[in-house]
Design a protein around this nucleic acid. Sequence first.
DNA 1: TCAAGATGATAATACGAATTATCATCTTGA
DNA 2: TCAAGATGATAATTCGTATTATCATCTTGA
Lengths: 343, 343
Amino acid sequence: MTGPRRRVTQRDIARLSGVSQATVSLVLNNRLDAGVRIAPETRDRVLDAIRETGYVADPVARRLADRNNRIIGVFTYEPVFPSGARDFFHPFLLGLEEQAERLGCDLLLLTSAPVEGGRRRMFAEGSRIRLADGCVLLGQEVDRGDLERLVGEGIPFVSVGRRDDAGGPVPCVGADYPAATAALVARAAELGHRRIAYVGRGEGPESYADRLRGFRAAAAKAGVEYGRVHAAAAEPLDAAVAGGVTALFLEEPADIPAVTDWAAARGLGVPADLSLVALGDPTRPVSIDLDVAGFTIPRREMGRQALDVFFALIEGAETDVQRLLPCELHDGATLGPTGRNRS
Amino acid sequence: MTGPRRRVTQRDIARLSGVSQATVSLVLNNRLDAGVRIAPETRDRVLDAIRETGYVADPVARRLADRNNRIIGVFTYEPVFPSGARDFFHPFLLGLEEQAERLGCDLLLLTSAPVEGGRRRMFAEGSRIRLADGCVLLGQEVDRGDLERLVGEGIPFVSVGRRDDAGGPVPCVGADYPAATAALVARAAELGHRRIAYVGRGEGPESYADRLRGFRAAAAKAGVEYGRVHAAAAEPLDAAVAGGVTALFLEEPADIPAVTDWAAARGLGVPADLSLVALGDPTRPVSIDLDVAGFTIPRREMGRQALDVFFALIEGAETDVQRLLPCELHDGATLGPTGRNRS
DNA sequence: TCAAGATGATAATACGAATTATCATCTTGA
DNA sequence: TCAAGATGATAATTCGTATTATCATCTTGA
């Protein structure tokens, strides 16, 4: 028990070496700028005192003098509790952490923002979003009002995931869903599929709309007939197959178990009778034992680059503040030539 | 382009509502102490201005003035890059987040601490650990010097994982490894095993020592002969089996693939010829297709309770600041009656 | 009518470091 | 011998918040 012994400050060093606090600071920062000079012997005396006492500058005080605090807020729309989608976001966080480690800044997880109706509120009463120098946004769907307010108040921020304009272009690092989806559609066309369907909402979050856009464009270009199934439910799926669809493109890969169960119940072989393509990674934890064709979202890299964009923003550096990263395509066992064609 | 945005300060609020900075501070901290009074209408005017601007106290300045932030630092010894063990720590973080969400505080991931020799340094030059009200420690092995310094400087902290004393008892929330390990040893004894072995270091991190301690105590109590295998390598494993060992207790479940590969190469059936028990969860990402007997570390709950202990500490509440949580036992397919006994 | 007490707000200062402007003192050159 | 320049150090101020001491102004009671 030494008791709460007081920290050694520059004042202490100053007293010990018979100089002023200002001199101590100057010695410490070793300023060689114009107009700042310290006699070698004075410098030595100060350095000795520092060595003896083991003085270390208080980083808190140091930060107060600066403009920013090198703290980046991380705002996640999905609540932690109950977990659910949290696993999906973990790789993004890893990328953010990794880059924060490299850039020497800290990440502030804004867990204090209240959760209402299953979503976190950004600007609720007592919002602490301004604790940090700015923030990174995570979430499938981002509130437009929040974006506008962030822009309006000039709070530096970057969205992980592409965002439509909100009173101006939104800085973001997204996945190139249109390109990845289009590539898979083209692949299906090559394999002989003539009627394909997009399973999902195709609207709401930008990531959904982007997938559907890529899907449509590529199908049209390949001369393939295409339709939509609005949900991964038995009835609409039955209708699609009855209409001659031979390949399903799933907006939400977490729906795969539901779709394979349905296919098994109908006696449809995958990919013999029906091909399946997963447009991304599942946002809910599900266990999938199939080797599904599709693509992977470069989540970790997105997290990394989000911080790069953030720093470019606050430092006024020149970069593209809207980036789309390529997804990694994956040939799985569920996309094959259509059995109907072969027969 | 809005230019470098200036932070909203109490001075701004003061100007907006026509009062002094001191008044703003008093309103914010809602001091009802003797001698401090604010007229309701003044208070309202100030609160309005705060609402309009979304003002939040600068955490740095607040710390300098020696007050609380409701920011809890999270210090992780394992670096993020390259990832590796990071997945193991994710559930702890989830528990921390969940409880932070409940308690209305934010988590500061101390990613700015430099990494040296594969470990993060806590008190390196310019350590920002004091930006937070205190911190939670994550890591298999915690530096003793760091613990002593935390205690010495009076920084409130809690370790996730039990820690030996460091100039006094260390506040912590750990897993009850001895009890869980002992239960599995007892189970093996019931199943007829007469010679068993502990595979691993059994020292270094407290969690290793705790497992070995539980193992020895339970084996002795059950009257079972026990030995040790210092690493999951072919040679020492061969020796153990040659010596009549019929069950292996793995300190590090990430070693399971290595051990099953070795067993397969030797033509040993699991559990017919040899039983396997995993003492916890793998700390490195490995794919295990077996249903291994063992126990699970209550990682999420440990994270949750760590924050509880933390707040109890800084609020001076009465609680046990050293907790051991029970692990969940899991009967798997790898622990069975010994074939040698049956023959 | 005046002193004592209650009320509400503010000025001043601390926290620890960084920085700028300023001030002595000493050299040097003519 | 005196002005100009070089040298070395310091006083004062800044950053944003918290707190204490102080100061007006208004009530109240006798």
